[in-house]
Simulated assay, not measured.
Amino acid sequence: MAEFLTIGEPMAVFAAEDLDASLVDAQRFHKFLAGAELNVAIGVSRLGHSADYISAVGADPFGQYITKAIAKAGVGTRYLSQSDHFWTGFYLKQRVSQGDPATYYFRKNSAAANFDQKNLDQIDFTGVKVAHLSGIFAALSANDLNVLKDLTQRLLAQQILVTFDPNLRPALWASRQQMIDTTNELARQANIVMPGIGEGEILMGSRDPNEIADFYLQQSDVTQAVIVKLGPDGALIKQRDGHQQVVTGFHVASVVDTVGAGDGFAVGLISGLIEGHTLSESVKRGCAIGALAVTSPGDNDGYPTPSELAQFYAAQAALSE
């Protein structure tokens, strides 16, 4: 049995080692395991919780590498199928000294984009406390959008807490409007929605955290809380019962790579909720792991073990004295 469940597309990422070189000019790359939802599963597992990952890979070297790497990270692979007909996605990522790195994806018509919906019948929901979904899987194909909707209904029927991160990837959608409409539709079926400020502006037209939160709370009675990520400044929590709070964030001395910070936030939130912490305490942990994530080059290399998280809290407390 697993405490945590998620679905997504796993990929191999080739991260450039040449600082501030374009992807055209970079010569040296390092291979990592990647995928937004997979990042969350790995982070939750690293904190000592059982996690299962639902997806598909091709019968190719990337698929074999990903399967081995997921298992090595302690994430369950019983729902990771292998396709003989479709390939495994991968992407290139720039290394930059500041800002967000450029990326380039090779994922069209991948094994994950052709996930067999019948595989959902194999899932054992016993013991699952939290399931995490994102807009990325829905953007891969019309097939995967149907899969995600089906899975969401199964989760809600089992009264499993569903968290949703928009995780906008405009390049994957046929149009901007389709991305907006579909992402907001998916958010309606989540118990907790966690957009960023920039995502809120795209999805509902405002950068005001309160307006973003109100939009998603008013969309659906299913949504009980909205957490608007504010970057280093923390996050706004707004709940259906009227409770509202801004949780302060953490600042780090050096930012190496911003990719994976949002997934790190989800790791903290979800692991805190699994452990029975309050929503506020869980969001605080999310801010901490999001901050740790930007200090390492890999998409999930900065996610901590319990002892490393305790050390980070201690170091931050010492700085504030």
Rank of each mutant, 00 (worst) to 15 (best):
H30Q: 15
V283G: 04
G198N: 13
A21N: 07
D214C: 10
L5M: 05
F4S: 04
D18V: 03
E9P: 05
K118S: 15
N184R: 10
F137C: 11
L80D: 11
Q98I: 00
I180C: 10
N167P: 08
E17N: 09
L203C: 08
A142I: 01
G264E: 09
L133W: 02
N184P: 09
L145R: 15
V57D: 02
H30F: 00
P232R: 13
Q64T: 14
V294N: 15
S296A: 15
S83E: 10
A174C: 12
A291I: 00
Q219N: 11
Q82A: 12
I274P: 04
K93P: 08
D144G: 05
R28S: 09
G8P: 10
F125I: 12
S55K: 06
F32Q: 13
T223D: 00
V247M: 12
W87A: 11
D52E: 13
K31F: 00
L156M: 07
I270T: 05
D84G: 15
L120F: 06
V267M: 04
S55G: 10
E211K: 12
D257A: 07
Q239C: 15
V162K: 01
G260D: 06
G135K: 03
E9K: 04
L186P: 11
E211N: 07
T88D: 00
L172Y: 00
F29P: 13
F137L: 08
A261C: 09
D214K: 13
S307G: 01
G76Q: 04
L151Q: 15
G286P: 08
L33P: 07
G302S: 07
Q224R: 14
L19F: 10
F125A: 04
G231F: 03
N143V: 04
R285N: 07
S22A: 12
D121G: 06
T126Q: 00
F86E: 12
I136R: 02
D121I: 09
P170D: 07
G290R: 12
R154S: 11
L155Y: 05
A174E: 14
I7C: 06
A102I: 09
N114V: 09
T152Y: 00
L230E: 15
M11W: 06
R285K: 09
Q159H: 14
G127K: 11
M204I: 15
Q98Y: 02
K129D: 07
F32H: 14
A314V: 03
A41D: 06
F312A: 06
L23S: 13
A56K: 11
A41S: 13
G249N: 08
G262R: 07
D144F: 00
A102K: 12
G196H: 05
A235V: 01
G272Y: 02
R107T: 12
A51V: 04
